[in-house]
Computed example of a mutant assay.
Amino acid sequence: MNERDLNYFCSLVETGNYTATAKQFQVTQPAISAALKRLEAHYQTTLLTQANHRAQLITTTAGQVLYIKARHLLKTFAQVDLEVRHADEQQVRLGFSHIAGGIWLPKVVTTFARHHLLNAITTTVGMSEELLAQLRHHQLDAAIFSSLQPMQSADLQVFPLETHPLCILANVQQPLSQLKMVQAADLQQLPIIARLPHSLPRTALEHYCRRSNVRPNIIYEAHSNQLVEKLVARNLGVGFVISDSVSLSPNVVQVPLKPSQAIDCYMQLAVRKSFLPNGKQAQSIDLLKQIQPTD
């Protein structure tokens, strides 16, 4: 039994056809048949049956068991291959969510430059869910991401970094800017510059309004916090963003949410539990854990 034979077998199960499998791997049909015979000899059982040479292949019960296990093994083989190839590299692959990147990247760049490690890191910026998927698929070594709840994971080590409250952005000409704190009812009928659906600030806004039975009057969906701030500066509406995630114009202020209705954004560092970092990778991850909010 070898990885190649398992790949051929899984394709046979999925296509039900020798010709399609041979074409997929650019080998001859006899090579595919030989691989199946080796597997059946190894396990001393029939894995696939065929009524005649033109019929679709039928997977036996034993074949179904092998297929499920083989798919898991092949995924593990691919991950091992990536890990081994990356083990001696001097690069550390870091991922940042859009929000975490805006807040944390300047701190990371400054800290790594101070320790002469800036040339050792490569960075990726994306959605938190995408970064965690890349981390699980061994395409990243660590990810700094944002969420509305502290994350718990069976396969990832997650370290808390910072907590940032969500807040209202208001133009100084907007009466809301004079309040010491805002409650959801204050947003009733006010024009709101919201982030795009499924973004963290948008999800937080919807949750904030829903639990107080307030229907947000969203007049525009902005692709970034920076655009939200610029539109608030033009007094087109109020914004709902993460505190400290954007530089403010002189005529824009942050107004905190009422404590009983407050929503927090959690910045967290995630690393695979199975990850065995080399010296430079371990040093870089330790630096990420040690960066302070004031750095």
Rank of each mutant, 00 (worst) to 15 (best):
I168V: 14
A170P: 00
A170F: 02
N171Y: 02
V172T: 15
V172H: 04
V172G: 01
V172E: 07
Q173K: 10
Q173E: 11
Q173S: 14
Q174Y: 03
P175I: 10
P175V: 11
L176I: 13
S177M: 04
Q178T: 13
K180W: 02
V182P: 00
V182D: 00
Q183S: 14
Q183K: 13
Q183A: 12
A185P: 00
D186I: 08
L187W: 01
Q188G: 00
Q189Y: 08
L190R: 07
P191A: 06
I192A: 02
I193T: 11
A194N: 08
R195D: 08
P197L: 06
H198E: 12
H198Y: 11
H198V: 12
L200Y: 03
P201I: 06
R202W: 06
E206V: 11
H207Y: 11
H207A: 14
Y208A: 01
Y208N: 01
R211P: 04
N213C: 09
N213M: 11
R215S: 09
N217M: 06
I219T: 12
I219Q: 08
Y220R: 12
Y220N: 09
Y220S: 10
E221K: 09
E221T: 12
H223A: 15
H223D: 14
N225K: 03
N225V: 07
N225Q: 11
Q226G: 13
Q226H: 13
Q226K: 14
L227E: 15
L227G: 08
V228E: 03
L231I: 07
V232N: 02
A233S: 13
R234S: 10
R234Y: 07
N235W: 01
L236S: 07
G237T: 08
V238E: 00
G239I: 02
G239W: 01
F240W: 01
F240A: 01
F240E: 02
V241N: 03
V241D: 00
S243F: 05
S245K: 00
S245M: 05
S245W: 02
S247N: 10
S247Y: 03
S247P: 02
L248Q: 06
S249R: 10
P250I: 05
N251M: 03
V252D: 01
V253I: 12
V253N: 02
V255E: 03
P256W: 06
L257N: 04
L257Q: 04
K258C: 13
P259W: 07
S260N: 12
Q261K: 08
A262G: 14
C265E: 03
Y266W: 12
M267L: 15
Q268A: 08
L269H: 02
L269Y: 03
L269I: 12
A270H: 05
R272E: 13
K273D: 06
S274M: 09
S274V: 11
